[in-house]
Amino acid sequence: MKFLHAADLHLDRSFEGLIAVPEHFQEQLAAANQKMLRNIVDTAIAEAVDFILLAGDTFHQNRPTLKTQRYFFQEMARLDEASIPVFMNFGNHDFYQADRYWFAFPDNIQRFNTEQVETKTFRTGAGEKVGITSFSYQHPTIEAAMVEKFPHKQAVDFQIGMYHGGQMPYAPFQLTQLVSKGYDYWALGHIHVPQVLSQQPYIIYPGTPQGHTQKETNLTGVTLVESQGNQLIPKSISVEAVRWEKRTLSLAAVRHPREIFSLVRKLTVNLPTLLHLELSDTENLGEELAYQLASGELLEALQEEVAQEICLWQLTLSEQPTERPYLAVDKELVDQLIMTYQAPPIFNELLSELDQNPQLHHLMDHEFRADAVALLEQKMRQSYQFRRAADVD
Rank of each mutant, 00 (worst) to 15 (best):
I191F: 02
V193C: 05
V193M: 04
V193F: 00
V193Q: 12
P194Y: 00
Q195R: 09
L197W: 01
L197F: 04
S198W: 02
S198Q: 07
Q200P: 06
Q200Y: 06
P201T: 10
Y202V: 05
Y205Q: 01
Y205R: 01
P206L: 00
G207S: 00
G207W: 00
P209N: 07
P209W: 01
P209V: 02
G211P: 02
K215Y: 00
T217K: 02
T217Y: 00
T217H: 00
N218T: 10
L219K: 02
T220R: 06
G221C: 02
V222I: 14
V222S: 09
T223K: 07
L224E: 04
L224D: 04
V225Q: 02
V225F: 04
V225R: 03
E226D: 10
E226R: 12
E226I: 04
S227V: 14
Q228P: 02
Q228E: 14
Q231H: 14
Q231E: 14
L232T: 10
L232H: 13
P234V: 13
K235Q: 15
K235P: 09
S236Y: 14
S236W: 06
I237W: 09
I237L: 15
I237Q: 15
V239D: 09
V239K: 12
E240C: 06
A241Q: 02
A241L: 05
R243D: 03
R243S: 05
R243G: 04
W244M: 01
E245Q: 13
R247Q: 15
T248H: 03
L249H: 04
L251P: 00
A252S: 11
A252G: 03
A253C: 07
A253P: 04
V254D: 00
H256T: 11
R258W: 03
E259S: 11
I260W: 03
S262F: 09
S262H: 05
V264M: 07
V264C: 07
V264R: 09
K266N: 06
K266F: 00
L267N: 07
T268V: 15
V269T: 15
L271I: 09
L271Y: 13
L274A: 05
L274M: 11
H276M: 08
E278M: 11
L279W: 04
L279Q: 05
T282Y: 13
E283I: 05
E283P: 00
N284H: 11
N284M: 08
G286Y: 04
G286F: 02
E287F: 01
E288D: 09
L289K: 01
L289C: 01
A290K: 03
A290S: 08
Y291S: 04
L293C: 01
S295E: 08
G296M: 09
E297N: 14
L298V: 08
E300F: 08
A301E: 12
L302W: 06
E305R: 15
V306P: 06
V306A: 07
A307N: 14
Q308C: 11
E309P: 15
E309F: 09
I310F: 10
C311R: 02
L312S: 12
Q314W: 06
Q314N: 12
T316R: 08
E319K: 13
E319G: 09
E319M: 15
P321R: 10
P325K: 01
L327Q: 05
A328P: 02
D330K: 07
D330S: 15
L333E: 11
V334T: 11
Q336A: 15
